[in-house]
């Protein structure tokens, strides 16, 4: 297989602390992957390792089956990092042209403007005079300058307003349709859930889950079917239904915990009349809850 990213048994140790601890995964061409985790989980370190900006203490990191530091790899990647300001004393257009000159097959200036969502009026402005959101857009454009196959975004939407954020994710979808591989970290869990096809969940430097957002939700949070029931029904009655893992009563509602809400729903309807149960609700485990569970378990330690 042609891995775009190979991350094999990677450990990164700072002094005594393991920021990344024996993490392995590989990413294939065209995937869109979110790296998710609480603060200090090792998300940014993982990105830095993939970009070759940090050396792994142990293990192997490769992009396109080469060292991330090789020129041929750098030709094919683009990134938007945290805590990078813009080059000052140059106009936006000058910076874009400069970056385009680094690559052998750059995107055209007009494409960069279109994709990044910048307005053409910004072109003749000095970069240091841009607003925070405009600077992020410029950095976004720079990450696309070389028409890369693989893109990294570390907390990309921090500092973007709602409109810019919407445009950003829209562009990400366009890039995905062009077959680009995209890796991003985010604190906005909804974004990971909405955009990514795969989530790498990091916790304390370890990879605790790796899969489709729905798989991860299934794995960590339970879904539930709840309803109001007439008093003559007992909890045990529901416990025997197929796929029901747990049953409890809360504020007058009966909750059935399951990983297959559809089957439970059908059997409920088959075996009960509408007089007996009402106001059925299905609750999908949301990724925010997964995240909270992890964060809480971390704080509890």
């Amino acid at each position: 297989m042609n891995d775009v990213v190979t991350f094999y048994n990677v450990t990164k140790t700072y002094k005594d602390q393991k920021a990344v601890n024996e993490v392995s995964f590989s990413i294939q061409s065209g995937e869109i992957v979110a790296i998710l985790g609480p603060n200090g989980a090792g998300k940014s370190t993982t990105i830095m390792l993939m970009l070759g900006l940090l050396e792994p203490s142990l293990g192997l990191v490769q992009l396109f089956t080469h060292s991330p530091k090789e020129k041929l790899v750098r030709e094919r990647i683009g990134a938007m990092l945290q805590e990078v300001s813009v080059i000052d004393r140059l106009k936006v257009k000058e910076i874009l042209e400069l970056f385009r000159s680094y690559y052998s097959n750059p995107l055209s200036l007009s494409e960069l403007i279109k994709l990044s969502g910048m307005s053409t009026e910004l072109l003749n402005q000095r970069a240091e005079k841009l607003s925070g959101g405009q600077k992020r857009m410029l950095n976004f454009a720079l990450s696309l300058a070389g028409n890369p196959d693989l893109l990294f975004f570390d907390e990309p939407t921090v500092g973007m307003d709602i409109k810019a954020r919407a445009n950003f994710w829209n562009t990400i979808r366009i890039l995905k349709d062009k077959g680009k591989t995209i890796i991003f970290t985010t604190h906005y869990l909804q974004e990971a859930d909405d955009v990514a096809e795969r989530i790498l969940l990091l916790h304390d430097g370890k990879l605790v889950a790796d899969g489709h957002p729905s798989e991860i939700k299934k794995k960590i949070t339970k879904q539930s079917v709840s309803f109001l029931a007439s008093t003559d029904l007992t909890l045990d009655q529901f416990r025997s239904l197929p796929h029901v893992e747990d049953v409890y009563l809360e504020e007058g509602r009966i909750y059935l915990i399951t990983n297959d809400t559809d089957t439970v729903l059908f059997s409920l309807i088959k075996s009960n009349s509408s007089a007996e149960i009402s106001e059925i609700q299905i609750k999908q485990g949301r990724l925010d809850e997964v995240f909270e569970q992890l964060t809480l378990s971390k704080e509890a330690q």
Binding site: L51, R74, A79, L81, S85, F99, Y103, G146
Partner: peptide
């Protein structure tokens, strides 16, 4: 300090 030197390292410019 502004992260530029680091950023330059991921471009093909040596």
């Amino acid at each position: 300090t502004e992260g530029w030197s680091r950023f330059m390292r991921i471009t093909p410019l040596s």
